[in-house]
Amino acid sequence: MSFRRLSCIIEELKICVEQGMPILIEGKKDEKALRELGINGNFIKVSGSGLKLFEIAEMAAQSSSKVIILTDFDKKGNELAKRLSSDIQSLGSHPDLTIRRKIMGITRKYIKDIESLPRHMHQLELEEHPCGDPW
């Protein structure tokens, strides 16, 4: 059941990306993981950019009226999500934490970061279809 729910959330994320919404992520490994799941969007990385957090929020807010925040589920990721959300909102854009919350709700006990998502999805798929057979 979790595999289907998580797959639906990933599909929801793909639709958002197709609509031109940028995704704020922490780093390169997160981007690689999301691409592995078939999400090829406008990724804005928080780490390693050399920009201040507010500048990153500004860049995201300028690119779209709605910005998806998909930081890790650990303490640092939660803090980043809060600060980015606040900054984006202050710039007149809409920060979207819905997908992050949904993924966190399903995976909370198992993973703490975005980069672990493909491996977790694969494990869930194997549990649901142990022989690789969908029926």
Rank of each mutant, 00 (worst) to 15 (best):
D96C: 15
S85A: 09
S64H: 13
I25V: 15
F73T: 11
H122R: 13
S63P: 04
C131T: 13
G50L: 05
T71P: 03
P22Y: 11
Q19G: 02
V17S: 05
S63G: 05
F43S: 06
E58H: 04
L84A: 00
S86H: 11
P22M: 01
I15V: 15
G38M: 04
K112I: 13
A81Q: 07
S49F: 06
A81M: 04
L51V: 05
F73E: 03
L70I: 04
R5I: 13
L37F: 03
K82G: 00
K102G: 04
V17A: 09
C16T: 01
G41N: 05
I15H: 10
K28Q: 13
M121H: 03
I56D: 08
S116D: 11
A81I: 03
I68D: 03
F43M: 12
Q123H: 09
G48I: 10
S47L: 08
E55V: 03
M21A: 06
L97R: 11
K29M: 01
I23Y: 03
Q123R: 12
E11K: 12
G20F: 09
K76V: 12
D72P: 12
L6N: 07
G92K: 07
T71F: 02
G20V: 05
S93D: 03
I68K: 00
E11R: 15
W135M: 12
P118M: 04
M104F: 14
I111R: 12
A81T: 15
S47A: 10
K75C: 01
P134A: 10
C16P: 00
D74T: 04
K82Q: 13
S47G: 00
L91C: 01
M104I: 02
K112E: 13
S47E: 08
K102T: 02
L126E: 14
K76N: 08
T107W: 05
I25M: 02
M104G: 13
T98F: 07
K75N: 11
G92P: 06
N40A: 00
G132T: 08
I111Q: 07
S49D: 09
S86K: 12
N42D: 14
M121D: 07
L53Y: 05
R119W: 04
G48A: 07
G92Y: 02
K52Y: 08
D133V: 09
K112C: 06
Q123T: 10
L24N: 06
R101N: 14
K45R: 15
Q62L: 15
D72G: 02
F3A: 12
N40Q: 00
L84Q: 05
